[in-house]
């Protein structure tokens, strides 16, 4: 059995999820190749070749690949898919853009956001916003899956896998990349941060959201997150929304400040290792998915916490 792992990166940095994807791929044995798509991938490919378990690093380099157009990435996958029994990536907005497209062109019933792989053709995943877990038996002859990276361990470093260049199919001209807006932040990236400080509508305003939570995040080296209610109220940008309609996080420590805990939010954070909830409402549903609960006024507690740590 041979497996192709598609590595996520931003041109400079490899995503933390790559080593987790490789340890998930070990399920099918040690014939694991990793595909890197982009331009000028020299340093990144060396980094990948150092991950234990990797047989070969495949580089698809071209200037137009830096914008990660789904049609282009899908065509690259299709050009090498015949060599693999399993094609795998970490579940994210990156992989979910091109992988279903490639899966359909390969006539494969894809499996999204796999939580665990009890056996080679058996997977668990969750449905209904994480409220139910299912076990799926697959009779696919080839698998295309995305995994919930935080559920898998990181593959170790210390390897020297061969690095190959692969041919890049012709550029798709039906999609033009016009530009992007990224929030500039000195804080770590939300999906890979070890600690997340997250705020809800109880913060009351954009000013308070920022002035109260940012010092705490700075001190902890944490990423900032928000509920959909806080985003809709204009307290926080959409990019940091956690939950069913935003991103899913599973840090070591999740600090929920003034968050009531609707299932639409908790589905995006309940796999965090330790959850702390600070809320004045003793009946807040967030307490049901928390390990430590502090029933108190957040406007007093948060500054005190910044002082204490």
């Amino acid at each position: 059995m041979s497996t192709l792992v598609i590595a996520e990166h931003n041109g400079i940095k490899l995503s933390n999820t790559v080593t987790q994807s490789i340890s998930a791929a070990v399920t099918w044995g040690d014939t694991i190749d990793v595909l890197l798509v982009g331009d000028q991938l020299g340093l990144l490919s060396v980094e990948v070749s150092n991950i234990k378990g990797v047989r070969r690093v495949l580089k698809a380099e071209a200037p137009h690949l830096t914008s990660f157009i789904a049609e282009d990435i899908s065509n690259i996958i299709l050009s090498i898919a015949h060599q693999y029994d399993v094609i795998l990536a970490a579940h994210s907005s990156f992989s979910l853009d091109f992988l279903p497209r490639a899966a359909a062109q390969l006539d494969v019933a894809m499996i999204s956001d796999v939580l665990s792989i009890p056996d080679r053709n058996t997977y668990t995943r969750s449905i209904y916003a994480g409220s139910i877990q299912t076990t799926i038996l697959s009779s696919n002859s080839k698998e295309v899956i995305t995994i919930r990276a935080s559920n898998f361990t990181h593959a170790e470093l210390g390897n020297n896998a061969e690095i190959f260049n692969i041919d890049v199919p012709q550029e798709t001209h039906c999609v033009k990349w016009l530009g992007e807006t990224r929030i500039e932040s000195e804080l770590p990236e939300l999906t890979s941060a070890k600690i997340v400080v997250s705020g809800g509508r109880s913060l009351g305003s954009a000013d308070k959201f920022d002035s109260l939570l940012r010092p705490l995040a700075n001190k902890l080296g944490a990423a900032l997150g928000a509920t959909r209610a806080a985003v809709d109220a204009g307290y926080a940008p959409n990019e940091i929304q956690i939950g069913q309609t935003g991103v899913t996080v599973a840090p070591e420590l999740y600090i929920a400040v003034g968050i009531s805990g609707a299932v639409q939010h908790t589905s995006g954070m309940k796999d965090s290792r330790v959850v702390v909830a600070i809320n004045a409402d003793p009946d807040a549903p967030i307490f049901q998915v928390s390990d430590y609960v502090l029933i108190s006024d957040l406007f007093n507690v948060v500054p005190e916490l910044v002082q204490t740590i």
Binding site: V108, A109, I111, S126, G130, S131, I132, Q133, T134, T135, I136, L137, S138, S139, N140, K270, V275, V276, A277, F287, Q288, V289, S290, D291, Y292, V293, L294, I295, V301, E304, L305, T308, I309
Partner: peptide, 27 residues
């Protein structure tokens, strides 16, 4: 269908939460 769901279950429950009374105790 090439995929068959063979089992449904509720996700594992989190351990019961601990109520702390102060920031100091929490830390």
């Amino acid at each position: 269908p090439k995929l068959k769901t063979i089992f449904f279950k509720e996700p594992p429950k989190r351990r019961p939460s601990v109520v702390v009374n102060s920031v100091k105790e929490l830390v």
